[in-house]
Structure formats: C-alpha cells, structure tokens
Computed example of a mutant assay.
Amino acid sequence: MMKFSELSSESWDELQPYLDTCLLPISGLTGMEAPWEATERMLRTGDWLSVLEQAFHGRTVTMPAYHYDQAGQDAAARLNELCERMKSSGFRYIIVVSGRPGGVPEDVSAASLWIQPCEEGEEPDSAAIRQAVSAMWRAGAGRS
C-alpha cells in the first residue's frame, strides 16, 4: 500500500500521474470517547480502509486520518473543503472511508466516493468495494 509518508518530493513528481486516487480515512471522534472506544473506532475504520489499500495498491495514496469532528453541517463543510484541497493538490478522486454507519456526513459532495458500513457490525465486502471503485473510475474516464 502507498502511504503519504512513503512519498518524497522527487517520487511524487514521478508517480503522481499514476496515483490519482486519495484515500481519506475518517474516524469521527468527538473527544468524548474513552481510550478503548477511540481505539475501537479507529480499528473499524482501518478494517474498511485495508480492503481498498490491498485491492488498489499502485493507484491510491492513503492520506493521514481525519479524526476529530462534530456531527452536523459544519462537519460536512470541513470535509468538503478538505476534499477540494486534496483535488487541487493533484488527486483526481477522493474516497472517504469510515468504519461506522453514517460516519461520512450525507452532504459531503466533494468526495468522489464514500465507503462505510450500512449498519453496525457489518463487515467490508471486498468484491462490492472493488466494484464501486472501478465504477467510479469508469464514470470519470470520460471527464477531463
């Protein structure tokens, strides 16, 4: 898997045409979690993220996780702004990944795709996730 910390200035210039998709994990912590709850939430997000990292190694870059936020309109606005900034830095697609249902606010429209469970305890479906990402890439292939 390609992590942001593995890229130098020189390698980024060389690899950027191939690494067009950013994976943005969000844990949705509020700061009110006990340490074990924060750990559990981050591990669940990692479970969903690892499916993408393994399936699409060589085309994606996993950026640092976005951990703390409050629910509501401001959360969506901040995530939309972050996605737009990542696009302006050179990524064509932004996939936001959460390990909990509703972890991605519904009005995060700047993300190319959201990956998250529909219900508590749901495990990632590797085939469905690969299909969703492939469909996103196919749909974007005709855009400039």
Rank of each mutant, 00 (worst) to 15 (best):
Q54S: 15
L29Q: 04
M63K: 03
M136L: 15
E122K: 05
S88Y: 08
G103L: 05
G121T: 00
D69T: 07
E40G: 13
P105V: 12
R78F: 07
E10R: 15
S88V: 08
M136Q: 07
P101I: 04
P124G: 11
L15T: 03
M136C: 08
D47V: 05
S126L: 06
F91N: 00
E10K: 12
S27C: 09
M32D: 10
E53V: 01
I94Q: 06
T45G: 04
D74Y: 01
A128F: 08
M32T: 04
A38E: 12
G28I: 03
R138V: 10
A77F: 01
Y18H: 15
K87T: 07
E122F: 03
L52I: 11
K87W: 07
A75W: 00
Y93W: 10
D20Y: 00
L49Y: 02
D69L: 11
H67L: 15
E119S: 14
D20C: 05
C22R: 00
E33S: 07
A139V: 08
Q73G: 06
E122W: 03
L29R: 05
G140K: 09
R100D: 11
F91C: 06
D74F: 05
W36T: 10
A110K: 12
I26R: 04
A55V: 01
Q70L: 15
S8G: 12
M32H: 09
A71P: 03
G72R: 07
T21R: 05
M42L: 10
S50T: 08
R41D: 03
G99F: 06
R130D: 11
S126I: 01
T30V: 01
M32R: 04
L82C: 12
R78K: 13
D107M: 04
D13C: 11
G102Q: 05
P17L: 12
V97R: 06
A141Q: 13
K3T: 11
T62N: 05
R92S: 14
L52Q: 03
S89V: 04
G46D: 13
A111K: 03
L43R: 14
I129H: 08
L23R: 07
S126E: 12
S9M: 08
Q54P: 01
L52N: 09
S126C: 04
G142V: 14
A38F: 01
R92N: 14
T39R: 07
E106N: 09
G90I: 02
S88H: 14
P101Y: 11
G28Y: 02
T30R: 13
R59H: 12
G28R: 00
P64Q: 04
S144E: 12
F56Q: 04
G121C: 02
D74W: 06
R85C: 10
R78M: 12
L113N: 09
Y68S: 04
S144V: 14
R59S: 14
R41L: 15
Y66L: 12
G99T: 01
M42R: 15
G46P: 03
